[in-house]
Design a protein around this nucleic acid. Structure first.
Length: 323
DNA sequence: TAGTTTTACCGCCAGT
DNA sequence: CCACTGGCGGTAAAAC
């Protein structure tokens, strides 16, 4: 099987971080986790040296024609002038790629290019929260959601600012190679496992700590006690809050309701068990805190779009030591 | 697969 | 007045 080709079109004066994250995830050979890993190519429209927003010079090996061979195109953040007046040849290349069925992914303000190409019309999308108002004004046909880390529409994915680049890249790895591999990459990058797309673009208040602290302990506790079939009432008790207040704070901080979050954790743990053990679906269901295998199947099918057994079959094939 | 019981969610509002 | 908590009840969702 040839490596999945990821191509990133770069534009002048782009910020460096959103460029660096996909390089870290896809550009390093991680054949020990999944073989082959990805084939990452950087391309640009302008000949000669490209500069990042901070003035660093980049020699880019490919032109935009490289986009034609991409399985996935990741559009990193771009400078304000590029947002307002994107290169027409790049927009055309993106439209053609979309027609071919290429997976398109934007990071941060890269969403401006997808929107300018008309590819987000009528769809849900996100971008950096600081740009949401401007974006919505410029592209009223796009249903922009400034409250999530990323939006996965299947063939087109858009992610929020800066740090969310990590989340969406790991999300792509999880879809292509399973959650265990994505977790390994996260561990090597020394970032938390992987946040769900629906999670809020939560920004820690300047004074920090106290607001989230009580809750994050409860989340850790819940994650390590999944098998106990915890209810929302149990979590509220653990947090020392009334159920009403707990639900409210939970929603504010994680962006999802308590039960949704619990289900996400259970699904994710079930995925990991399916990938890394030979336990029966019944046992996996128990260990992940589902009341029955039937309940696991229902939720698993809805969240992952595959039945548990099929999922195991797909992702156990190249299962190996994960660091 | 359908039907019943239990649990969660969220707007509303009163109390601090 | 504001900011927050927490109880109630209708509806939606999950569990059985």
């Amino acid at each position: 099987m040839p490596a999945h080709t990821v191509v990133m079109p770069l534009t002048d004066r782009l910020p460096i971080f959103e460029l660096a994250v996909p390089c870290e995830v896809f550009g390093i050979d991680r054949a020990d986790l999944a073989d082959p890993w990805y084939d990452l190519r950087l391309c640009a429209g302008e000949p000669g040296t490209l500069r990042t927003g901070t003035g660093l010079g980049l020699d880019v090996p490919y032109g935009f024609e490289a986009l034609e061979e991409a399985d996935t195109i990741i559009i990193p953040a771009c400078s304000r002038p590029t947002q307002l007046d994107p290169p027409a040849d790049l927009l055309n290349a993106l439209r053609r790629a979309h027609q071919r069925g290429t997976r398109l992914v934007s990071i941060c303000t890269g969403a401006y290019l997808l929107a300018a190409a008309g590819l987000l019309d009528g769809r849900r999308a996100t971008t950096h929260w600081m740009n949401v108002v401007d974006f919505a004004h410029r592209f009223p046909q796009v249903r922009v959601d400034g409250g999530v880390l990323f939006v996965d529409e299947g063939d087109i994915l858009t992610s929020a600012g800066t740090g969310a680049a990590v989340d969406i890249c790991l999300h792509l790895v999880a879809m292509d190679h399973g959650t265990a591999v994505a977790h390994s990459v996260a561990r090597r990058m020394v970032v938390p496992p992987h946040r769900d797309g629906a999670q809020a673009q939560f920004v820690e208040p300047p004074t920090g700590l106290s607001r989230t602290d009580g809750l994050s302990q409860v989340l850790d506790w819940a994650r390590s006690n999944l098998a106990r079939q915890l209810t929302v009432a149990d979590l509220a008790r653990q947090a020392n809050m009334s159920q009403r207040t707990f639900a409210r704070r939970f929603q504010e901080i994680t962006g999802v309701s308590p039960l949704r979050w619990l289900l996400q954790q259970r699904i994710r743990y079930a995925q990991e068990l399916l990938e890394t053990t030979d336990e029966t679906v019944e046992t996996v269901a128990q260990r992940a805190g589902f009341g029955s295998a039937a309940a696991l199947r229902t939720h698993f099918q809805r969240a992952v779009a595959l039945p548990p057994k099929t999922y195991r079959h797909v992702f156990r094939t190249n299962q190996q030591r994960t660091v």
